[in-house]
Design a protein around this nucleic acid. Structure first.
Length: 397
RNA sequence: GGGCGUGUGGCUGAGCAGCAAAGGCAACAGACUGUAAAUCUGUCGGGGUUUCCCCUUCGUAGGUGCAAGUCCUACCGCGCCCA
């Protein structure tokens, strides 16, 4: 048990021996995770440390969740190839609201200590910051891979960015962290915590880094790439996204973002068709955030649309007076509750028609539209299908 | 403060005075199937009376050309070097 806590979804433990001893002693540890509310959504990559925290929580340790309402404004660059803009406090506040709720999908929030780091970071004055800064050298900063690369590429690095690790490090001091968890990209910041704790005569925290996970396109999962699976995604969306994952990441996902037992994962590996492995994965993940029922529904829905090429259960409805319509115009009319058109521009609609992506369904009657000048005679309940997964149902007024 | 560079579509990155602007990534569509995977092919600013026409776009504002992302001037941002 202790063994899995320190290995599954873990890249590195510093100082491992020390942490093992602490765990074995049965002492209740203070485990820290900081999250900056830089986007309204937590994604699956964030779930990795959160799950690790849950492991600790289940083992009876105290979880301290730090919402970076202060650091979020400054912006960490650890995971960035370019400068991260400073965010407005308003945005941060908005994002913050949903964060706890999202983290609560994994952790038992009631048992956590939730803190905001503006609480202590706001109070520091220049004198104190100066003393802290004395513990770090520019040389250390610029030898970080990320920073170094940007430096070499002639990209801008602001001084403000260099302050970030100090702040995160001071969080550890403020809450007297015993262990801190973070992605491998956080290593430098996590270590800064140890340095500052020593400076303030505290016992330095131990560190657990977790691997980063690839997103849907195979690049690292990141909100700025738009390749994320979000914890707040609907069940159907989540299922579909995971099905579109590259096959090579299936097992990695199983070990990192689920808690399916390791033996079971070995069994799943033996399933010959990766599609089936992925379906199990998708269902498992959806289950974690939406429950068993919705997970099952999502799977059925997915099979319905993509395996059997049937129609989805729900689709946006366009209410429209009866008559003849040009297909292009029809595609660009906003439908459904969010009132977004099936296709954003006429040029694109035309292209889609030319690419044989548009189909009109009238009951059993299916007609491919290949001429973008086509006039469509509407019937009540006519369904327009674009590509594999865009549908719209017509309702005559 | 001075010198030299640089600023291009969602991102990245070419660009010779005649381009809606190479390549890559992402996205979308088709074929295929194991699926929204992989692979292959195509598309990828907007609009139209659609084998062609019009509009908008290359940091901002002006200028010189029949013609400007491409030349000039000023301004703004960024980088490097010097101080």
């Amino acid at each position: 048990m202790i063994d899995e806590i320190l290995t599954r979804g873990v890249d590195e433990v510093i100082d491992k021996k020390n942490l093992e001893e602490k765990l074995a002693s049965g002492k209740k540890l203070r485990i820290k995770l900081g999250i900056d509310p830089t986007s309204p959504n937590l994604h699956l990559g964030r779930a990795i440390p959160l799950l690790k925290l849950r492991d600790f929580q289940n083992a009876g340790h105290k979880i301290i969740l730090i919402i970076g309402d202060f650091t979020g404004v400054i912006g960490d660059t650890s995971d960035k190839e370019s400068e991260r803009p400073m965010l407005g406090e308003k945005i941060i506040k908005q994002n913050m609201k949903t964060y706890i709720k999202q983290a609560g999908k994994i952790l038992d929030i009631k048992k956590c200590e939730v803190r905001h780091n503006s609480e202590w970071l706001k109070k520091l004055d220049y004198h104190e910051i100066g003393r802290q800064a004395e513990n770090f050298s520019l040389n250390e900063f610029i030898s970080r891979e990320n920073i170094k690369k940007r430096l070499d590429d002639g990209k801008r690095i602001s001084l403000r960015e260099l302050m970030y690790p100090l702040m995160q490090g001071y969080d550890s001091v403020a809450i007297k962290a015993g262990v801190e968890i973070g992605g491998t990209d956080q290593r430098f910041n996590l270590l800064a915590g140890r340095q500052l704790q020593r400076f303030y005569k505290q016992e330095p925290q131990d560190i657990i880094t977790n691997p980063l996970i690839e997103g849907l396109d195979g690049r690292k999962m990141s909100s700025s790439w738009g390749n994320t699976v979000n914890l707040l995604d609907s069940a159907d969306e989540m299922f579909g996204k995971i099905m579109s994952l590259k096959d090579e990441f299936i097992i990695k996902y199983f070990t990192l973002v689920t808690r399916v037992r390791l033996q079971e994962i070995e069994e799943i590996k033996k399933i010959p068709n990766p599609r089936d492995q992925k379906a199990i994965l998708a269902k498992e993940i959806v289950k974690m955030y939406h429950g068993e029922k919705l997970a099952e529904r999502a799977e059925k829905e997915f099979n319905k649309i993509f395996r059997n090429k049937e129609l989805p259960s729900d689709m946006p409805v366009l209410e429209i007076p009866a008559g003849k319509y040009n297909i292009i115009d029809l595609l660009c009319l906003p439908a459904g509750r969010q009132a977004t058109p099936l296709v954003p521009s006429k040029n694109e609609a035309k292209r889609l028609v030319e690419q044989k992506a548009v189909e009109i369904l009238n009951g059993e009657n299916k007609t491919k539209i290949t001429d973008w000048k086509a006039e469509i005679n509407l019937e009540n309940g006519t369904i327009i299908k674009v590509g594999g997964r865009r549908f719209m149902k017509l309702k005559l007024k």
